[in-house]
Amino acid sequence: MGNWERLVWNQRDVLLAGLSITVQVCAIAFLVAILGGLALCLVRLYVRPLRWLAVLLIEFFRDTPIFVQLMWVAYVWPEVFGFPNDFFNAGWLALGLQSSGYLAETFRAGIEAVPRGQRDAAFSAGLSPVQTFRRIVMPQVVLASAPSIVNQFTVIVKSSTLVSVITVPDLMSQSQKLVNVWYEPIEILTATAAIYITFIFLVSACGKLLADRLRLRYGLVAA
């Protein structure tokens, strides 16, 4: 298959443009997921009257398949809520919402796992609840759930392939365009698959390294 050069290498600009869009969508979605997840988690734990709403939203975002959520956010929300106004925004919004459900549960588990004594010590020292949360509880939660958080990012990247369906020009969509032009799917699709697999593998590996390094530094993992 000497077509590799013709079909893949020469088209690398197209593919890289797609990859850039993929990275953008994923990065924004990840941010939304963290902030949204944190917000949902805090409401669920500390705002009693709205707890039912938070639980409902968390379950809804987690349990609905990402493809279904994507179509729903892309085609129904603009009519009902007025946004998202284009498909790029629909993409990161849907991805972010789904992962915020998972992260909300991850954060909740982490917060509940912090020993009560930590808060006792903080209050006894005169720290306010907000300070305690920011300086004592959350850092421990992040440290403990770092692997889950990194994993959720890889889930976002894997799900991002679906935004091609709502015509966002990501890597998947660009490679499908190339296939439609050249009618030779073998090299293009294999290369695309390889790019995704490698990218996700690297993200996973770096995330694991970072998480291990952090935990080592704080003595949570034996050297």
Partner: peptide, 9 residues
């Protein structure tokens, strides 16, 4: 590490 959709395609 493979996205479901790309594997499917």
């Amino acid at each position: 590490n493979a996205p479901d959709y790309i594997m499917l395609v």
